[in-house]
Design a protein around this nucleic acid. Structure first.
Length: 992
RNA sequence: GCCCGGGUGGCGGAAUGGCAGACGCUCAGGACUUAAAAUCCUGUGACCGUUUUCGGUCGUGCGGGUUCGACUCCCGCCCCGGGCACCA
């Protein structure tokens, strides 16, 4: 056989798998199902980097292993292809985004196929395909048609709500009569219940890019792309009422096999707070606040509203903000500079707040604010306290208003100190009466007539009870989670299946109208205004519709202008955010071609009901919160509406760790080129262009602040000394040693294509897994790739043989041993049987280890177990074919191309090795019957004795004590006791 | 600031209460070769003694504790990585 040459075998098997649909999943089967899912990629123009195949290899190993164990395995791949980069690239190059996207998908697909992943490519999905986004739109109409019933704690169809209004079981909140309402008024009321609704909300508007940006896309008040200024401005937006599901999303977490840290991230994101809502009177109006410390109500000395709070809305018909300052209003309360009236002060402050970006608000936490001229009455003591507005109170959280208790809240304390407001202690530490304020820890209530002497926990409880009795307020749970801003002013996204009617109401399109395709536009660039690009597609935008179905909750069918019942309408011009398509793609894989529904219910049931959900989901931690929360939300809505059968989409989830670039050494030198030890370099490095135009790091010398410049150092010139790296040539100079995140600008990106070209896909796969634990951050190393490549070469040599090392494979047939066609002689046969016998235990141990390790996703140790076994194959004169076949079977999930090739060589079969069942390990063959037992004296290793594993405790002790070396170490000291752990070790406890 | 995760040879890592450093990389020596590469074999935690076979001491971020026995469990601290951050 020729030497191992991956280039000659890998493409052949990739084609074989594809042509024969080797990895196709059965949509429904008698076999148990196993659904192993990757986070599908955004097909960027850059192509794959070595980070992608990490998670993909892990899932591929599991998929191949589970198939071998008899499972019907779903292992699909697809494209999350809507999104801003494609759109911007399209604008720059004046090509249509669909063209760019198609090209990128092709590139990604061929790259993924060259790694030999066992995807069922017939199930591939593409979020930009109208046959896919048709169902994204359909799910949106389900969200639009769902309201959340707080009593039943689940989402229900709008028809049920209408029924409740019609029967009088439910009444409009403002006390008006449903029956007396106009059709339009009814529709408007219903809008306020829908999970998909519209809201005038402040967004990050970037005029230069002509689009709204997500918070993550805004850095320091400028756009991440291009660095253009971003402003906050209110715009009409679609929102999804994810907050209605906050408790369900929280409760569901405990049923999931996700890492605790990931669940915690989601819990923190949802941010449940228990407390109370308290009503304060402000003139004739009622001001509600949320507090987690109702026990400190007697310590409230002022109130603060968010600047955007409706009570201080100056544009309202009847603003409650007075026109003149109340007598004796301190100058400091009137604004900076002091305004002539509360209205002027509030107006100026509101403008100033609006001009500040979210980021600025977060970074500068110094307290500012103005007095509104209003006073509120504290319900518990009838005290009259001033009402301020300040941007430290957020409009989007709680009620957008707080009672300020400066004695027991750091922020209120800071504000009160600045504005000279009274600070009162109403909680004391159990052991002292006087303590410095603010005191935010729990303690004992004081100066609070209703609850004096109660510890904080009980005081809260008692206060809530009293508030409820006296109708001053009630218990309340508030979540940090906000409703999901769901619209974008972009072209390359899913159009909303919604039309706007002349009366200002909206109607969802009938199912027969889907997909609503993006209009073909030659000019899809952003407009220079706040209008989305789709506004330019006039022929598409302006339509006539006929309303069908229920009066209050109709659907729209597009008709010709003159048709009976036709009314003019305008399509929604926003598009959905990139998250939309990825919220449900795992459902479409199950039945990707279905034109009747998003997924056939019986197929959905087979794959998701038992055990519930996707069995293994692997992806990057960057999606720990948003994607995983959004998907869970959609899934729960679909579950409530009866469209899916599992309450949660992803049962087990694992985040693969980031792969960093190869280790780099950096030396700093001053402007005349003298090297500077890293201990004298300021740790804040800045990037700046050097004289050659390339980016380099610049820092300052700690001792004199002089500018220093970084340059890379050849690894051979560096020596590691403990924690530090020094120059070999001058060891007094320490250099910086670390691995950086791969990025195009650093030039340390490793392209999998290059690795495959030099070492093959199997070596790439193996190294990705051998680097270390899946979830850990790890630096890339080409030398490491070479290591696993050598391993594969040795496996090949042992099993296939090479010109230098002819094959030693022997095969037993009818009790006779053969090498090829030649029968072995008697002596040789005896030796071959002995050699087979001696490999039996190592082989079974390897089976056990590899099996267990795949189950616990510990791929690096599974690979080392196979390496250890392979290291035993060099010596014997013969190797048993069936044993080698078993070994190759174990290797298949990791290095499938080589495994196929060796399987074919060993058996002559034309079947794929993936069809062979997973080997069983014989436990009896895993254990040795004799061991070299370590013997300790007082916990320290003192010697060892050969013993039979089944030897009795007392006998083992006797043998140990008989050992000369151990006797010497005991030195005659009397033994107090001994501990024998069967087969593991013996510990002798003696004096001293 | 709060919340998670982690700290083991020159490097990636293994061992989850029982022989610390599996496996791989690196490096060194040897074999093959005219030579080199590739490949194969041997060695490779530090220190000390014998100076060869062998033996000893120390050693899992630091300091305490529990235990016959601790990388592993408990308490306190230091450092690194990640997440959240005016959320009332």
């Amino acid at each position: 056989m020729a030497a191992y040459n991956p280039a000659s075998i890998e493409p052949k098997w990739q084609k074989f798998w594809l042509d024969n649909h080797i990895f196709a999943a059965e949509s429904i089967s008698d076999r148990p199902k196993y659904y192993v899912l990757d986070m599908f990629p955004y097909p960027s123009g850059e192509g794959l980097h070595v980070g992608h195949p990490e998670g993909y290899t892990a899932t591929d190993i599991v998929a191949r292993y589970k198939r071998a164990c008899g499972f019907n395995v779903m292992h699909p791949m697809g494209w999350d292809a809507f999104g801003l980069p494609a759109e911007q690239y399209a604008i720059k190059t004046d090509t249509h985004p669909s063209v760019v996207t198609r090209k990128n998908i092709q590139r990604f697909k061929s790259q993924l196929q060259s790694i030999g992943f066992s995807y069922d490519w017939q199930r591939q999905v593409d979020t930009t395909d109208p046959q896919y986004y048709r169902w994204t739109q359909w799910i949106f109409t389900i969200l639009y048609d769902t309201w959340f019933d707080d009593q039943k704690n689940c989402g229900r169809p709008m028809a049920d709500l209408i029924e409740e209004f019609n029967t009088g079981q439910r009444k409009p909140a403002d006390g008006t009569s449903w029956q007396a309402m106009s059709e339009v008024a009814k529709r408007q009321l219903l809008e306020s219940y829908r999970l998909a609704y519209q809201l005038e909300a402040p967004v990050n508007w970037c005029p230069a890019l002509g689009t709204v940006l997500a918070n993550e896309e805004v850095i320091d008040g400028r756009s991440e792309v291009g660095g253009f200024p971003v402003e906050r401005r209110p715009m009409r937006q679609w929102m999804l009422r994810i907050t209605a599901y906050a408790q369900r999303l929280l409760d569901g977490l405990s049923t999931l096999e996700w890492s605790e840290s990931l669940k915690l991230m989601q819990r923190n994101w949802i941010g449940e707070s228990q407390g109370a809502k308290v009503k304060f009177a402000v003139g004739d109006a009622v001001l509600e606040v949320f507090t987690t410390r109702p026990d400190t109500l007697f310590g409230a000395t002022y109130m603060v509203l968010a600047p955007e709070h409706p009570l201080v809305n100056l544009t309202a018909d009847k603003s409650s903000v007075p026109v003149a300052w109340p007598p004796e209003t301190p100058l400091a309360w009137r604004g900076e500079p002091p305004a002539a009236s509360p209205r002027a002060a509030v107006d100026a402050y509101q403008r100033a707040t609006a001009a500040r970006s979210e980021r600025q608000r977060q970074e500068d936490t110094r307290k500012t604010g103005v007095f509104t001229g209003l006073f509120a009455v504290n319900p518990v003591n009838s005290e009259r306290i001033p009402v301020f507005i300040s941007d430290y109170v957020l409009a989007g959280y709680g009620t957008g208003a707080i009672m300020a208790v400066p004695g027991h809240d750091d922020r209120d304390f800071e504000f009160a100190s600045k504005f000279q407001l009274p600070i009162r202690a109403v909680v004391r530490r159990p052991d002292q009466t006087n303590m410095p304020l603010p005191m935010t820890d729990p303690g004992i209530a004081c100066h609070s007539p209703w609850i004096d002497g109660l510890p904080t926990g009980e005081a809260k409880e008692k206060m809530c009870q009293l508030l409820e009795e006296k109708q001053f307020g009630q218990r309340q749970i508030t979540y940090r989670l906000r409703d999901w801003l769901f619209s974008r002013q972009r072209y390359w996204g899913e159009p909303f299946p919604i039309v706007h009617l002349a009366d200002g109401t909206t109607v969802a399109l009938a199912e027969s109208e889907l997909p609503l395709r993006l209009p073909e536009m030659s000019d899809f660039k952003p407009t220079q205004t706040i209008e989305p690009p789709l506004s330019k597609a006039q022929h598409w935008r302006d339509v006539h519709v006929r309303l069908i179905g229920l009066g209050e909750n109709p659907k729209a069918e597009v008709v010709a202008a003159g048709a009976p019942g036709a009314v003019p309408a305008r399509r929604e011009l926003n598009t959905m955010p990139q998250w939309a398509g990825s919220c449900w793609y795992y459902l479409r894989y199950l039945d990707p071609q279905n034109a009747e529904c998003f997924c056939d219910p019986s197929i959905e049931k087979y794959w998701l009901s038992h055990p519930a959900g996707v069995d293994l989901y692997v992806g990057g931690a960057e999606h720990a919160v948003l994607h995983l929360l959004y998907s869970r939300f959609w899934h729960q809505v679909l579950f409530d509406r009866g469209y899916v059968s599992s309450p949660e989409p992803f049962r087990k989830l694992v985040n693969q760790g980031l792969i960093l670039g190869e280790a780099e050494y950096t030396l700093f030198s001053d402007d005349v080129g003298n090297p500077v030890s890293i201990i004298d370099v300021h740790p804040d490095w800045q990037s700046a262009p050097g004289p050659d135009g390339k980016m380099r790091f610049v820092s300052r010398r700690l001792s004199d602040g002089k500018e220093l410049y970084a340059s890379p150092v050849d690894p051979d010139a560096v020596e590691r000394r403990g924690d530090v790296a020094v120059l070999k040539a001058s060891p007094e100079i320490r250099v910086d040693a670390r691995s950086f995140k791969m990025s195009k600008s650093r030039g340390n990106v490793v392209n999998p294509d290059d690795v495959i070209r030099d070492y093959g896909a199997d070596a790439l796969r193996l190294f990705e897994m051998f680097m270390g634990p899946l979830e850990q951050v790890k630096p890339w190393s080409m030398a490491g790739v070479e290591g696993v490549y050598r391993f594969l070469g040795r496996v090949w040599r042992h099993i296939a043989g090479t010109p230098d090392f002819p094959s030693r494979i022997v095969l037993e047939r009818d009790g006779h041993l053969y090498r090829g066609e030649a029968e072995l002689g008697e002596a040789e046969s005896r030796l071959a049987r002995e050699e087979r016998e001696s490999l039996l235990r190592p082989l079974h141990r390897t089976i056990r280890k590899v099996t267990l390790d795949i189950d616990r996703l510990s791929f690096n140790t599974a690979i080392s177990a196979m390496m250890e076994f392979n290291n035993l194959l060099g010596k014997p004169a013969t190797l048993d074919r069936d044993q080698m076949l078993t070994f190759v079977r174990l290797l298949e999930p990791f290095a499938p191309h080589m495994a196929e090739e060796l399987h074919q060589l060993l058996t002559g079969s034309n079947e794929s090795i993936s069809r062979l069942p997973w080997p069983n390990c014989d436990e009896a063959l895993c254990a040795d019957d004799a061991v070299d037992l370590p013997v300790q004296i007082n916990g320290k290793l003192a010697g060892r004795v050969m013993i039979d594993l089944n030897l009795a405790d007392a006998e083992v002790l006797k043998r140990a004590l008989a050992d000369a070396q151990i006797q010497a170490r005991l030195a005659g000291r009397p033994m107090k006791k001994h501990v024998y752990v069967k087969g593991r070790m013996l510990n002798l406890v003696v004096q001293g």
